[in-house]
Design a protein around this nucleic acid. Sequence first.
DNA 1: ATTATACGCAACCCAGAGGTTGCGGATTGG
DNA 2: CCAATCCGCAACCTCTGGGTTGCGTATAAT
Lengths: 117, 117
Amino acid sequence: MTDPTGRVFDALADPNRRYVVQALAQRETATATELAAELPVTRQAVAKHLAALNDAGLVESRREGRETRYELTPGPLAAAMDWIAGVGAEWDSRLARLRRHLSGGSPRRAGGARRRG
Amino acid sequence: MTDPTGRVFDALADPNRRYVVQALAQRETATATELAAELPVTRQAVAKHLAALNDAGLVESRREGRETRYELTPGPLAAAMDWIAGVGAEWDSRLARLRRHLSGGSPRRAGGARRRG
DNA sequence: ATTATACGCAACCCAGAGGTTGCGGATTGG
DNA sequence: CCAATCCGCAACCTCTGGGTTGCGTATAAT
């Protein structure tokens, strides 16, 4: 999993990690111990998750005295969204090509990737 | 990984799986054998990946004669994007609150989650 | 009918993820 | 100084994920 996009998606695949991301999106910073208090796992487990998030570039750590505070760096989230959007665009243009090919009627632009219908 | 969102992110975490998704976004359908020809893994490996994608709701299979054709169903991608967008929104509103709190100046809306700077 | 193609199922292998416990080392507080 | 926190490192365990090989079976082609 050396590619950046893969690391981001992998980071978001775990529920505990998603909880951490959401938590850090709301409060400004948090420590592993604080987060562990709200999760069904130990502090070390949370520390590992934070390491994974840091590896994906989603989080930055800063030591303050005896505690290590983590902060969200949501940049890579945009990259992940871009990837999904790219797939949606290819899907849409393929649909447009198909539609245009089937009937010469006015081929209006389709929106983004739509929900399951 | 019983939660739907987790399954989608987990599906997108693997490079081969992402390749399959992109491939299916362009061509209309494909078989496991066809995809395996473009990937450094065996047909069975691709079949497992397709099963995972199907489990995440990203793909549907249809048997046609002796071959099984797979088609992309991009609905769940929107759900994944929504999750990311939700985090971005919370992040933005927190920033807005902070900015409004620090200085009474006109608090213009921030954009979406921005790229790494 | 026989051969070739495409699939599914099952067993198996191995590395890594997620988790725990057990320390030892800083830092803060009395 | 001594006790209480907070952290990081390391060992360990278990289970799943990605991958392979092997085989049986159904459909298609000759």
